[in-house]
């Protein structure tokens, strides 16, 4: 028993355990998502979070100790944001060909995403730090976390809200667009990428390749625009 305690005390202080656990939980969650034929509700991030949160609870490990290991994965969010430049430049021709519709959709969508989120949150009298945390919810996670942190929000809360937003967009986009009779794949893809980032884009790729490419454009452009507009909205409303 003493031996177990000695090994545990080593594992509890080194990053190895929780780094490995994060990768393992994600691989398991991905298999579970695959078993559900990648239905948007069976989101691998949400499943991974549930597995790891249960593990932390069961082993009474504080989040800070977990993050000591998982921070190496978290660090990659920065370079991942920079890497979004590649699909953006690769799709430059498609962007040029539909420049004006894209510009209009980008401004209208980004403004609506931020302003409606902030105003509804104010109407529910949520605390200021929570309102800030909600404001970048439609943006891809690495950028949303950066915005939330820079404006005094709670990045861990933002992470969860961003994931939930992605799932909502991915689940609702096809029924809504079909009900409205919208058949332009570029418009459909762009709007779901803008409103629900990578999770929405992944759904768009499942439905149609053109929609997927435009979802990628939508998420990358909205990442830039939200990081410019969210600080203004927070300044104006709070």
């Amino acid at each position: 028993m003493n031996e177990v305690a000695r090994i545990w005390s080593y594992l509890a202080t080194e990053p190895l355990l929780w780094l490995t656990a994060t990768l393992g939980a994600y691989l398991l969650a991905d298999q579970i998502a695959l078993a559900f034929r990648r239905h948007p509700l069976a989101n691998p991030v949400l499943i991974s979070v549930a597995i790891l949160a249960s593990l932390l609870f069961a082993t009474r490990t504080p989040y800070d100790a977990y993050f000591g290991g998982a921070q190496f994965i978290h660090f990659m969010l920065g370079p991942a944001t920079v890497a979004l430049a590649l699909p953006l430049v690769a799709n430059l021709r498609a962007i040029r060909e539909t420049a004006l519709p894209i510009l209009a959709a980008l401004i209208a969508g980004s403004l609506t995403a931020i302003v409606t989120a902030v105003l509804i949150a104010i109407a529910f009298e949520l605390p200021a730090s929570v309102i800030v945390s909600i404001s970048p919810k439609s943006t891809t996670a690495p950028v949303a976390l950066g915005i939330s942190e820079a404006l005094g929000g709670l990045p861990t809360l933002t992470a969860v809200l961003v994931i939930l937003t992605g799932i909502i967009g991915a689940v609702t986009v096809t029924p809504i667009m079909n009900a409205l009779g919208i058949r332009d794949w570029r418009a459909r893809g762009f709007s779901v990428g803008l409103a629900s980032h990578g999770i929405g884009a992944a759904r768009a790729f499942q439905v149609n390749d053109v929609a997927g490419a435009f979802a990628g454009i939508g998420l990358a452009l909205n990442a830039i625009v939200t990081s410019l507009l969210a600080p203004i909205a927070i300044y104006l409303f709070i």
Binding site: T22, A25, Y26, V45, L46, S48, V49, L52, A53, L56, Y63, Y66, F67, A70, Q71, I73, H74, M76, L77, A80, A141, P142, L145, P155, T156, L157, T158, A159, V160, V162, I163
Partner: peptide, 8 residues
């Protein structure tokens, strides 16, 4: 990459 923050 979102998982560590999500566990928060």
């Amino acid at each position: 990459l979102f998982v560590p923050a999500g566990v928060g």
